[in-house]
């Protein structure tokens, strides 16, 4: 579904991604871990098409087609969803309006009839229950005045409604207490299926107890330096990221 080869990306004249490789297939859940500043959000934003990041080298294939040339809205319509680390507040636009516009844009692209307000409401009621979202939230402006936890929950709620083929979650666990974490994980696990892929970006292992990944990768200083299964996450949790430094140093010395 997603093939990233030797991806280099920069922003404000600074190289952030320095040759990332990653392959994600249908049905898989991948976790990307790594210390703060290693480039995890940059990778996520590049996948969503943020214009501040310039891809200088490498390629991204999504469903076999070049992704880099697609506008952000076309990526979303093709099934890519990014749950933002810092979701935007949009005063004056209700959640209801926003999410229905998003859904209808995607449906239109897929040749499925658009939903009117009534049909939309009955569709989202179900998902609200799963994610413990108050219906009153739907008439509030997008993320305006939401707590950090509410914003994260709202991202996953959007994801549940839009049902993407490839979901990328950037630090969705930060700012969530353990109950909220469980609710969010339930929402994500409900989406797991044979035709979907999920990339979970986090620098804590905690979330991975609830959303169990098939693969774990470590992004470090703009490169994937290690891959493994869920045991790798536990190891990172125990040892922290410091040992990576040493190991990498050694590799360089004796290579």
């Amino acid at each position: 579904m997603l093939k990233i080869k030797n991806l280099h990306a920069r922003a404000a004249g600074k190289e952030i991604l320095k040759g990332v490789d990653l392959e994600v297939n249908k049905g898989e859940v991948h976790a990307i871990m790594g210390p703060n500043g290693s480039g995890k959000s940059t990778l996520a934003q590049v996948l969503a098409g943020h214009a501040v990041y310039e891809v200088t080298e490498g390629e991204i294939l999504y469903k076999g087609k070049d992704l880099i040339s697609l506008a952000p809205e076309d990526r979303a319509r093709e099934g890519i969803f990014l749950a933002f680390q810092y979701p935007m507040e949009i005063p004056g636009v209700s959640n209801m309006y926003f999410l229905r516009a998003a859904l209808n844009n995607i449906r239109k692209h897929q040749g499925v009839p658009e939903l009117d307000a009534m049909d939309f409401l009955s569709l989202v009621r179900e998902k609200m229950k799963v994610l413990d979202i108050d219906e009153a939230l739907m008439s509030r402006a997008v993320n305006e005045g939401f707590s950090g936890g509410e914003k994260k929950r709202n991202e996953i709620f959007q994801m549940a409604v839009l049902e993407p083929a490839l979901a990328i979650m950037d630090e969705t666990d930060s700012g969530l207490d353990i109950d909220a974490l469980r609710v969010v994980a339930n929402g994500v696990n409900a989406l797991r299926s044979g035709d979907r892929a999920i990339i979970v970006v986090t620098h804590y292992q905690r979330l991975l107890n609830y959303i169990v990944p098939d693969f774990v990768h470590v992004l470090y200083n703009g490169r994937m330096v290690k891959s493994g299964d869920k045991e790798l996450a536990l190891e990172l949790e125990k040892k922290g990221y410091g040992w990576l430094d040493e190991e990498l140093q050694e590799n360089r010395l004796y290579a």
């Binding site: 969503a48 098409g49 943020h50 214009a51 506008a71 952000p72 809205e73 990526r75 979303a76 319509r77 990014l82 933002f84 979701p87 935007m88 949009i90 926003f98 999410l99 516009a101 998003a102 859904l103 844009n105 995607i106 692209h109 959007q158 839009l162």
Partner: peptide, 9 residues
């Protein structure tokens, strides 16, 4: 960008 990333042109 946030709106576009949700599929809105």
């Amino acid at each position: 960008f946030y709106l576009r990333a949700r599929g809105i042109g």
